[in-house]
Design a protein around this nucleic acid. Sequence first.
DNA 1: AATCATTGCTAACACATGTTAGTATATTAT
DNA 2: ATAATATACTAACATGTGTTAGCAATGATT
Lengths: 205, 205
Amino acid sequence: MLVYYLRTMARIKIEKNTSRKEVIVSKAASLFREKGFKAASMRDLAEAVGVEAASLYNHIKSKTELLHELCFGVANRFMHHMDEVESKKTNSIAKVEELVRFHINEMINHYEEVYVSDREWKHLSDPYLSNFQNQRRMYRKRFAAIIEAGIRNKEIKAIDAPTAVLIILHAIGGIESWHRSTQKIDAAALTSNMITILVGGLKND
Amino acid sequence: MLVYYLRTMARIKIEKNTSRKEVIVSKAASLFREKGFKAASMRDLAEAVGVEAASLYNHIKSKTELLHELCFGVANRFMHHMDEVESKKTNSIAKVEELVRFHINEMINHYEEVYVSDREWKHLSDPYLSNFQNQRRMYRKRFAAIIEAGIRNKEIKAIDAPTAVLIILHAIGGIESWHRSTQKIDAAALTSNMITILVGGLKND
DNA sequence: AATCATTGCTAACACATGTTAGTATATTAT
DNA sequence: ATAATATACTAACATGTGTTAGCAATGATT
């Protein structure tokens, strides 16, 4: 018996106000997070999107472009938030706490992108690579400056500010483990625990 | 004019009491750290060692074996140290501080291996992968148990112990940034700063 | 219904990868 | 010196990679 299958061509499904490119970038985020940028192949990505590998190139320029989009998307959000925080008239501890809260929220709500931006930026190529590294350095400098101001007016313990920044940023990166954990406490509890330990450890009392 | 070069065959240079395999594993550590496991090729490694790619296989079984050696080498050191700490009769804060100190020392003195083991273990393949993940889980559980004991006898603030472990371990991972930093404070100062913030943030006072 | 722009498909490319076979050259032991 | 072992080399393999060319199907516009 002969059976004819009427196959219709695959199509990337989109919702209102999202381009097909955005769908691809988003799937790329979770794939890069899972396997790492180098280990994730365009054929893997194509399968996740539900299409053949070559078809992706109707929407994107290259694999690296996907990494650009992810890294700079995240970097921009953090930079804008830093602008906001700096312009506020609150004390240093409050500023630090707000920065920490923002980081935690980003890590909880935009897990994949933030994680990828954090771990895989090394694979950017050079006009972008230096740019990204600069942004990172700047962000940390500004963060450290806030802590230093707090040390000067005795709000914060006399510690090495760059070290504190380093600790805080990496500690938050640990939410990765929480995210994958089976028995996770709820997000609010996690946040308040982290604030207690991280900000509490800075306070001069 | 005709010039004859008398080339002698390359050879992996070794020092007293180190096998050629150890040299390879060590070079692999810094290469994997720099580029990531997937992005580092056996030809890259061969060049770093000063030999042709195929020659490496006189000493090792496969690329993955290099990752095994690195990951389990590190994991074993941490596990043994945990055994030691648990068997001591000191209070909880002292135990936590000793664990933290050990981590920092390992990160400072065996930077490349620890870093690789931490970031690249995902690329292990399966009998080894599960084994490694189990060891990791166990280590964290035991660390959390020590903190929980400290909470029960009021040495330590009433926080979520797994979260605290997560923060501590990842914060120490931040030494990576310090390591690459141009203007680094000295190791002792770094250690004392980290202890102040991390252990200080736990103490009940 | 006809036209045009999107978006998909198949096939293929050039290249890099981990690894093996077979052989030559060092080093060590007899 | 000779034999045996360890270590290196060249050449090649099979496979996986990102990407392009050319064409077919679909959707939107007129």
